[in-house]
Amino acid sequence: MTDASDNMMEVKNVTKTFGDEWEQETVVENLSFSVKRNQLTAIVGPSGCGKSTVVNLLAGFERPDEGQILLNGKPVTGPSKSALVVFQETALMPWLTTYQNVTFGPKLRGDMAPDALKAAADKIIDTVGLREFRDKYPLQLSGGMQRRAELARALINQPLVMIMDEPFRGLDAMTRQLMQEFYLRLCEQESRTNVFVTSELEEAIILADSLIILSNRPTSVREFMQVDLQRPRNLEMLSSPEAYEYKRHAMEILHEEALKSFKGGAGNSDFLEAYSRQG
């Protein structure tokens, strides 16, 4: 069952250190996990533990110091459209309209006929509900719309893996919920391979097929969980006993990790606060 071809991505004993000889900081240490094809793998971890660094490694923006990352069986050697990232902060080009942003990738590569591209772009912009904002610039969109535009821009490239780095961070609670529902439906309609990084546990549980909990810095996999909530899902399912059990278990581990960083004086107490409030 755990045949290697089931895995879209494989991370094998990856270590990443920043800094020069005098001041080194190991952010990722001996990290190993795999991302199953056509599944959503959620990654949670305390704030500042190195999640974005893991994303940068997966996407090929950073090279591991040790270990290896395989994408579809081939080593990742640099950024490519096979592993596309939707960034934590919006990375829509401010000088391009929604439509121009969405068509940016295909136009650059010239791998789609103009008519086909136009049709595909308009369809995707429709899917994310931005038809009326097709010719608006990013600054004219609300935070939630920007996130959706960015999703559209990633989707049109049909990446092998979509990597989302805390894509809904910074949105207000209501918009965040709407985006989660939207994203859930998007994932369930078509099968895609997704890596979804977040520091919100509930978000991770409701979206994920499998859940990876990262340890405090230097980060590695602290716990792997299979989330077997039935699909299609909705946000109400978070209050079901099963979901509650997943949440309780994960929270315990996260709390421990957060506490470590707190004692270590790494200054990540915002995470601790957030979770002790939820109690």
Binding site: K81, L84, G105, L108
Partner: peptide, 8 residues
């Protein structure tokens, strides 16, 4: 980075 990962 966004542009690079789209093949720039």
């Amino acid at each position: 980075r966004a542009a690079q990962s789209m093949g720039a």
